[in-house]
Nucleic acid binder design. Sequence first.
DNA 1: CACTAATCGATATTTTTTTATCTATTTAAA
DNA 2: TTTAAATAGATAAAAAAATATCGATTAGTG
Lengths: 205, 205
Amino acid sequence: MCSEPTIKRLSVYHKYLKEVEASGQEFISCTKIAKNLHLLPIQVRKDLSITDIVGKPRVGYHIKDLRDSLDRFLSFGKGVKACLIGAGNLGYSLLRYKGFDEYGLDIKFVFDNNPDKIDTYIDGHQVLDIKNMAEHLSKTEIDVGVLTVPRVYAQTLANKLVECGVKALWNFAPIRLLIPQNVVVKHENIAGSFLVLASRIKQIR
Amino acid sequence: MCSEPTIKRLSVYHKYLKEVEASGQEFISCTKIAKNLHLLPIQVRKDLSITDIVGKPRVGYHIKDLRDSLDRFLSFGKGVKACLIGAGNLGYSLLRYKGFDEYGLDIKFVFDNNPDKIDTYIDGHQVLDIKNMAEHLSKTEIDVGVLTVPRVYAQTLANKLVECGVKALWNFAPIRLLIPQNVVVKHENIAGSFLVLASRIKQIR
DNA sequence: CACTAATCGATATTTTTTTATCTATTTAAA
DNA sequence: TTTAAATAGATAAAAAAATATCGATTAGTG
Ligand SMILES: NC(=O)c1ccc[n+]([C@@H]2O[C@H](COP(=O)([O-])OP(=O)(O)OC[C@H]3O[C@@H](n4cnc5c(N)ncnc54)[C@H](O)[C@@H]3O)[C@@H](O)[C@H]2O)c1
Ligand SMILES: NC(=O)c1ccc[n+]([C@@H]2O[C@H](COP(=O)([O-])OP(=O)(O)OC[C@H]3O[C@@H](n4cnc5c(N)ncnc54)[C@H](O)[C@@H]3O)[C@@H](O)[C@H]2O)c1
């Protein structure tokens, strides 16, 4: 289909185009997009070639058409049903984040094992007892399990989620999960990202 | 030096080795590391070759030596001085995250523009008025600006941080910042990551 | 109306990252 | 002591991603 870096950039173009669209412009070129997003025009052009939109030489792309096309292309997030495990700092933050709505992420359940958290509400989501997870997931089919629990519990909970039939895991704990081939896993390693940044700072000195 | 994916994986090996070390084992092979982390042995071996540790055939690496070496290698995070802008959901979460301490990230200042937040404390960090940012940063040299503000403010604040002399930006807003060449930028696109995951779910169906 | 400069889109090249192959070494068992 | 199996490490190949090249097209200009 298209590469991971490309999908991420497409989501950035999408937001950018909405901004430009709002300003009333009708056409925009790769050159301009690239300049404003600190990228190379060739890369933008290549990324955008996954859409069905053809640009006009000398003018660029029709902004509304392009944005529409990206809307359609990025619609694979629509109606993805998720449950989040671990209503801690990060879980709380993700639950309150409005940006996912735009892509259609639908968080159906939130689970935790801390009695102080169970039955509280976070942004309209009731925190449920992890003990009842299997029961809830047997009644409502869930696509993605979002793991925002401490590292040591991540693998065990991942196994349980897989048993419950989730198709994918979105894991924020700094561990690589051991998971059957047919289950999709996306690891988010924020602390690792910090190290990448730190190493780059060291390099330039 | 070494690639971005490699640094991220090294941070994962590091945590994993500490775990195995605690269990009392003395040696470990690439094969075993790979099996437990769902990776290929060749990749693990290649990643670990950046360390000065040589493995013994048939046995693998001396765990303590390897962990020590990774400690040293991953030390480029040590003493990195940062300020965080935007004490909202995500900022709060990052401030309370203990995992960065291990890598030596030192968040010196937290800024926000919301009067309700200014002068409150988050995990021991006083939230300061963004108006006084330049003043604070002129007194204490800061390496990294962490941006956890809404998208629309990110570029403006990035510019201010650069004026104040930060060497790097760690940006969590879904926008690509326009920044001088000599400033390092690391973009974290969590919503984009969700799209990557969603697209992979679509593919396997 | 012709000319110029900008930009698209297809194709090609380069670079980066991952994966494979092969040889030498070492340990543990025969 | 010999032999077989496992694995490191060097080198090579493949795959993925980024970047470059170039002809075709078109809006604007003289
Ligand atoms: N907070 C961050 O900014 C941040 C950054 C990078 C990585 N992470 C990672 O994200 C994960 C969560 O971090 P956090 O800061 O939100 O931690 P946290 O301690 O604030 O939250 C963890 C939550 O998980 C719950 N939990 C623990 N065990 C559970 C179980 N068995 N079943 C159900 N719920 C359980 C806890 O009750 C708690 O609410 C960690 O793995 C951390 O390494 C967090
Ligand atoms: N929360 C998440 O899980 C999440 C996920 C993905 C991306 N993000 C991105 O991270 C950023 C922050 O998200 P959030 O959910 O924490 O938002 P938020 O609204 O909770 O927090 C933003 C904070 O920034 C402060 N702020 C706004 N303008 C400011 C200014 N000019 N100077 C100083 N402070 C200012 C606000 O007062 C607020 O405290 C956004 O760009 C968002 O897109 C967040």
